[in-house]
Amino acid sequence: MGFNVHFDWTGSIGEVILGATKSDGGSRRVSYRIGGGTTLPFLDKNPSSPAPLIAFEICDNPVFWSPIIRNYCGELVNNLQEWAKAGDATYGADMIRLYLTSTRQRNFSDFPAVGKAVETALSATSLPLIIEGSNDPKIDSDIFQKCGEVGQGERLLLGTAEASRYRSIAAAALAYNHALIAQSPIDVNLAKQLNILLREIGIQRDHVVIDPYTGTLGYGFEYSYSAMERIRFSALKGDTDLAMPMISSAPDTLTIKEVREADLDGQDDMAVKWEFYTSLAAAVAGAEIVCVRHPKTIGMLKLAFASLKTGTGSMEVT
């Protein structure tokens, strides 16, 4: 006898290319093709199916960054060039995600500085980049225009489009051929609605990465987990408006009570474990890119993903 499991999937996850190498007109040493899944995460029989990517998050103004990271990384956080470089060479991330936190200052208008920050990141690492723009709709247009322009040819992943503000970022992505992150508040329907809005103003499906918003472990993670599962499920069932790869980042991880109030000597470990549990679970739900801020989480995730990807790290069989 023998059992056969049928899921009857009719769809697959669309593919998105991030980063452009020299041959594609960019300067990245690698370019990722993410997505393409045809079944639930880690069930693919093909051993060469890609493992989730790990993006290391940094920013251009560390005042807005967690003190845990500022303590751990020390002076590095004040030097964007070195910080980005370390994310690549020392910590071994697959991508660097730059938050332009400087734009969160009141009445921010120094747009050339934004271009400068993106340039710095591009020169510090040859990994594909994710660039997070402003938090303020009033300056969206200028910021995204600048980011798009500076990163022209590099196939950046630009963040973040929301249902209430997607036109500026979409315009920049269209003009300079970048991909973008479409973020909606933890709901499969809202995710789909935003994708439809983007489609209708001309963004191609292979330029969109879904961010269903990740509440960190213990703070709404279960909602995010189910939203991701539902998105993946709908895509595999043939809903092309949801058939894009997903990105997961839980920005609250380092500020929640469990991490903030951990003993000082155990605080890094708590931060790392919290990021690890959240990110791995997000990958199991279907995230193709997971983002972390603690350097030590990267190594741990890499090991786990390697085992999940190829089936190595074999377990003792008695």
């Binding site: 709901d187 329907n189 809202l190 789909k192 609605q193 439809i196």
Partner: peptide, 15 residues
């Protein structure tokens, strides 16, 4: 609630 969110779009999320 799920149907509601899905319906809060013109005309609907499921076109």
């Amino acid at each position: 609630m799920d149907e509601y969110t899905s319906s809060a779009f013109l005309p609907h999320t499921d076109l």
